[in-house]
Amino acid sequence: MQLDWLLQPLLAQLNTGVLVLNDQHQIVFFNQFIARRADKRLEHTQGQLVYDVFDDLPRAWLQRKLDGVLSLQAPAFSSWEQRQYILKLPHLRPLSSDSLYMAQNCTMLPLTAPDGVSHYVCMLIEDATDAYVYQLQLQQSMAQLELANRTDGLTGVYNRRYWQQQLGYEVARAVRYQHSLALLLFDLDKFKQLNDQYGHQGGDAVLVELSAVIGALLRDTDLLGRYGGEEFGVVLPETDLQGAVLVANRICKAVAEHQLLFNGQTLNVTVSIGVSSYKGQTADELIQQADMALYNAKRQGRNRVVAWQEPAEVYLKQVK
C-alpha cells in the first residue's frame, strides 16, 4: 500500500510544530501549526535565516544548541520549565492563562538527507501551556499553604512550631558568625480576668490588636511568634542584652499606653517581659532562662521587664 499521500495531511494537521533548518540555520520547512500561529508563509521565508524570520529568538542560545546537534549528531532538548518558549507564539487559551505566549517543549533532532552529506535539524515544538498553567496554580497554592503552615491562625504572627525552628536557626547563625542574639518572652497580665470579664471574643480581640501594636515596634529581621495562649516570644538577631532590654521596655510602655476599644469600652492591658541573651546556650536553654525572668517580672508586680541573671550560687561556684 502506498503511504506517501499521508505525509502532507499529517504534517498539516499535526498538533505539534515542525520546523526544519539546514546546517546554515536557514528555513527549509515548517508546518501549518507554526505557519498559522506565527502568521508566516513558508514560500515567503524559505531559505532565510531562522533568526531573521522569527523575532525575539534567543539567538546565542539557539545557535549553540543547533551547532551542537549538527556537530554531535545527537538530539538536544528544551523544556518550558527552564525556558518558557523559544518561538514567540500565541496560545489557544487566552482566558485561562495569564501568560501571553505558548509554553513549549522543544526537541531538536539531527536529520541527514538520503545523499548522506546534507545535514538538517528538525525542531519539534509542543504546546505545554496547560502544564505551565497548572504548575503556576500549584506554586500559588503551595505558597499559601506554606504561609498558613507557619502563621498563627488568630493573630497572624508566627506559630510556635515555626518560631521555635527559626530560633534554632538564629542560634546556629549566632554560633557561626559570633553574632549576639537575644530573646524576649512576654505574657499578658491578668489575661484570665480579661477573658472572664469580656468573654473569649474580648480576649481574642486583645491578642490580635496587641500583636499588631508590638509587631509595628520591631525590625523586619525580628521574629514575633505566639508561644502559648497569651504568651508571645520575640527573637532579636544581632542584639545584645542591653539592646534587648531597651526593646522590651519600649514594648512594655507602648502596650500600657495603648487604648484598646472593645464593644465600645476602653480596655487597659499590660505585659510582663523576660529577657535572655545568647552566651553559648542552646535554644531550649534560652527559652527557659527568658521564662524564668518572665516569672520574676510577674512576681515583682507585673508590667515590667526583667533580664535573666545567672543564679548567685552558680556564680560563686565559678569564682571558686
Binding site: 542560545w61 544548541k65 551542537g68 554531535l72 545527537a74 538530539p75 523544556s79 527552564q82 525556558r83
Partner: peptide
C-alpha cells in the same frame, strides 16, 4: 556568558554526554 539557568545547563550537558555515548 549568557542567561542559561543552572538547570538548563545541566540538562544540556547530560543530553550531550549520554546521547553521544548511547548512540
Amino acid at each position: 556568558d549568557d542567561d542559561s539557568s543552572e538547570a538548563e545547563m545541566l540538562t544540556d550537558i547530560s543530553s550531550v554526554l549520554t546521547t553521544t555515548f548511547l548512540n
